[in-house]
């Protein structure tokens, strides 16, 4: 009997945990400023004002990140000339691992390196990868947690939407 009561205790404790997910609701706000350490230069996120920016936070060990690279290359190639850019911020603590990844999945867009994770802290990431769409005026408009291949078409529509503004 006491065993059953103990089990009931576990279940009620667990139920409390189950349905208390913290989901980020998103209202447009200025994109927090970032210093971007690219391979051979340092720029600021605000330098890209006037362009639609797909800001992606990734790491070499993150599996969905691997799937996002071919798509990001594709988007860069397709919309790069219309005032769009992907900026991928790498959060590997070891640069070597990021370089290995990039040698296998080359990026045709700017990649910034942030081994300390300061930018991730600033953006309060809730998962990996996380990406943000920033409009031409520098406002954060859309956030995606994770990269879902089946949602690629809708991601692309969002880019088209912001480019058309």
């Amino acid at each position: 009997m006491s065993r059953i009561r103990a089990l009931a205790g576990v279940i009620s404790l667990s139920a409390g945990l189950l349905f208390s997910t913290a989901n980020l609701a998103y209202a447009a706000q200025p994109a927090p400023e970032l210093v971007l350490n690219l391979t051979n230069q340092q720029v600021k996120l605000s330098d890209y004002r006037g362009q639609v920016v797909y800001l992606d936070f990734w790491a070499s060990w993150c599996k969905p990140c691997q799937r996002s690279f071919p798509w990001m290359n594709d988007m860069q190639a397709k919309y790069g000339e219309q005032g769009f850019t992907v900026i991928a911020v790498n959060l590997d603590s070891e640069r070597k691992l990021a370089d290995e990844f990039l040698s296998k999945l080359p990026a045709h867009f700017p990649v910034a390196f942030d081994p300390e994770g300061n930018s991730a802290q600033t953006y309060q990431l809730k998962g990996m990868p996380t990406s943000y769409l920033i409009d031409k005026t520098g406002q954060l408009r859309i956030a995606h947690q994770g990269f879902h291949v089946e949602k690629q078409a809708s991601y692309e529509q969002e880019i088209q939407g912001l480019l058309a503004e």
């Binding site: 071919p70 040698s103 291949v149």
Partner: peptide, 27 residues
Amino acid sequence: ATVASALAGAACALLGTPAAQAEEGML
């Protein structure tokens, strides 16, 4: 190769950008 990455590769090829071939092992 996944169909998706094959399609992505095809799209890159159409646009004249080099397709990411060195995806061995990763994808």
